[in-house]
């Protein structure tokens, strides 16, 4: 009598409740962080009205400025390098049928996804510290190199997915219409692949921008990126300034993700 609701086979008791709870639990802490970044008070513990003061503080902080610039330089280089080599590898591993050693290539490319980051970080620390001694060079190159390598699988996956969804008849048609292999790539394959390439570059950019552990181990003195700067700040007290930086980074990530969703959706 009280069972007026239709019996729905897709619902299981309590599942919807736990699911909604999961979403709330996922977003509540982030929301707190974001809200407190606009705190007008001087302490993290008390709400003192809406204010952008901590953003101003962060913006005027020379260390934050330097770390931001460093983070962006590394992320830009890492995304360009990793996307370029990932695109070449994707072209080499998808459009010409199976060949010997393909599995080995997949394994090496996806290696950063399998090995715990702390282990890679330790390995790079050991390796680069001897290179630093041997060459005397202590610039950003090590971080760019390490980030580029780490970002390759993230750039590779969307490009590979796009290539696998692309008909090889396009390249056949181009060859039929007198295009040399290079012209075929330049005028047909690359334009069609571009959304995948941009998507891959965006993911690589985010991954590089967010990286903490490898950066922490590889960086030389005075080479803090935003995440390692924030981690360093934590040794002292939690400041609303860190909240402000986090919120700014979060906003950037969400923006890139939205662009990514639109890019990968188009033309499908």
């Amino acid at each position: 009598m009280n069972k007026k609701r239709a019996f729905d086979v897709t619902t299981l008791p309590g599942f919807t409740f736990i699911a909604i709870l999961s979403f709330v639990l996922l977003y509540a802490p982030i929301a707190t962080l974001v809200i407190y970044s606009f705190n007008g008070g001087n302490s993290v513990n008390q709400w003192g009205g809406f204010s952008l003061q901590w953003y101003v503080v962060a913006f005027n902080n020379q260390a934050v400025q330097d770390a931001t610039v460093r983070s962006l330089i590394i992320a830009l280089w890492a995304s360009v390098i990793s996307t370029t080599v990932a695109m070449m590898a994707a072209l080499g591993t998808t459009r010409r049928g199976r060949f010997k050693g393909q599995t080995a290539i997949y394994m090496i490319i996806n290696q950063p996804l399998m090995v715990p980051e702390i282990v890679t970080a330790v390995a790079l620390l050991i390796f680069f510290s001897s290179v630093k001694i041997a060459t005397g060079y202590t610039g950003l190159g090590y971080l760019i190199l390490a980030h580029s390598a780490f970002c390759v699988p993230f750039a590779y996956l969307p490009i590979k997915a796009r290539l696998e969804g692309m008909d090889t008849s396009m390249e056949t048609a181009a060859a039929d219409l007198y295009a040399t292999p290079w012209q075929t790539f330049r005028y047909v394959t690359l334009p069609l692949l571009l959304p995948g390439v941009i998507a891959g570059a965006m993911l690589a950019f985010i991954i590089s921008l967010d990286n903490v552990i490898i950066t922490e181990f590889v960086k030389s003195a005075g080479q803090d990126t935003l995440p390692t700067y924030m981690l360093g700040q934590l040794r002292r007290a939690l400041t609303p300034e860190v909240n402000a930086i986090s919120t700014a980074l979060l906003a950037l990530t969400v923006l890139i993700l939205i662009a990514f969703v639109f890019l990968t959706k188009k033309r499908e």
């Binding site: 008849s169 181009a174 039929d176 219409l177 033309r267």
Partner: peptide, 20 residues
Amino acid sequence: IPPNQRPVNTVFQSYALFPH
């Protein structure tokens, strides 16, 4: 001789028009 050097053109079953 590779296809791009043959004075021969094809109308494909799937048309294979360049979508971009």
